[in-house]
Design a protein around this nucleic acid. Sequence first.
DNA 1: TCCGCGATAATGTCTATACATAATCGCGGA
DNA 2: TCCGCGATTATGTATAGACATTATCGCGGA
Lengths: 234, 234
Amino acid sequence: MKHLHQRIRDDIEARIMSGEWPPGHRIPFEHELMAEYGCSRMTVNKVLSTLAANGLITRRRRAGSVVAQPSNQQAVLQIQDFAREAARAGTEYRFKILRRSIEPIDAAAAQRTGMRVGTKMLSLSTLHVMDDVPQAFEQRLINLATVPEADTEPFKDDPPGTWLLRRVPWTDAEHIVRAVNADGTLARRLQIQTGAACLVLERRTWQAGAFVTEARITYPGDRHQLVGRFSPVA
Amino acid sequence: MKHLHQRIRDDIEARIMSGEWPPGHRIPFEHELMAEYGCSRMTVNKVLSTLAANGLITRRRRAGSVVAQPSNQQAVLQIQDFAREAARAGTEYRFKILRRSIEPIDAAAAQRTGMRVGTKMLSLSTLHVMDDVPQAFEQRLINLATVPEADTEPFKDDPPGTWLLRRVPWTDAEHIVRAVNADGTLARRLQIQTGAACLVLERRTWQAGAFVTEARITYPGDRHQLVGRFSPVA
DNA sequence: TCCGCGATAATGTCTATACATAATCGCGGA
DNA sequence: TCCGCGATTATGTATAGACATTATCGCGGA
């Protein structure tokens, strides 16, 4: 016998997922569920609140709860950590910082990140290599106002992304994924044909509203893909 | 004055996000928070349970709660609904079903979807067009065992993806994003240059374990990108 | 007919309490 | 010293009741 909370939740989810209760269908009131399961209102309230937090139902005072309209479809994709992937696959991984400088942010980047033009940023270009095959080219800006210790960090053991993740664990993030044809410079760096399709992942993160970093990571299209699994209910 | 629940939650989140409580740091016990905020244990319990459900903290009986280790980085991307986008942008949208057939599933697709080889699937090729400019080419398989009514559906008003979303609202999904160079056929369909980089989104969905549909949507790389915003806390 | 306003009905938040469960601590015996 | 087992402690689940909030319904007056 499972917990009542879970049983009620499973029952309702099953009815929604099976289509028995389609989007827009009114869910029994809390006092009805309370009578049906012979429990207190707090218990059904917590179940329904959880379902609402997960986007499965919509609740409105006085009107009751209804099955939510299907949300915008979304894809959740895992962003690969090269070192971990390499360890798992038993291959050798290394990275090389091709360029490092401190520069005032330009107008376009300021626009994207919401910073003032001219703010000092640490700019890094990094090549990720596994078994001597280039896997990705990364261009990154780090806000020295938010992460001042990046200024003196040599990035010997960990690449900038991994190093940052350990210092700024929880953030808001914005992602853009595009496909581009490799130009000559990029093709040479990634050892691919000029014009080959590449996947570009742009990731910008903020910590409690303060801009942290922007990364543009370019993967050869024939070697990489982004993968993700997703369930709407937790 | 906000609700106490929200205030406690904001306080704890702020301390985690600012780095004051790094990953692994022990969070005050429920009875400590209870004393600090002068409220009942149920209130702080609900806050901490919510934070745990969102992956921000880890809870263990007797040991207490600690700030969770940073999760694998992930990107959440919105998948565009053409009709809605067109309505919002004030442009004209239409779609054209180029090919429609019922076929037994081939070995490769059976492998991907976990179906038995030979299962009958509805196969559709659809072109999405906005203001006479091709926006995406979609190849889709629909499992007729799970969605039998697709067999007789003419897909007059809604494209297959939208039609399905209304019938099978909540599912598990798997996504793959790749970059490819357009071959001659694809280039002609999308009115782009042969070899131009394209973004390919593969999406497979299941309903309570039963395979529903697989879609491979190809977007011209110079016209489209996937965008997403993500906060670890809801 | 239409509008305003009070009654009503549903959810939102919170309390005080109770008992269950799981992991750890530490005492005592072999 | 080491192991087993009971006591302890923190979280997990649930209850019954209270009051707050808000959208809607419907009645009565203009």
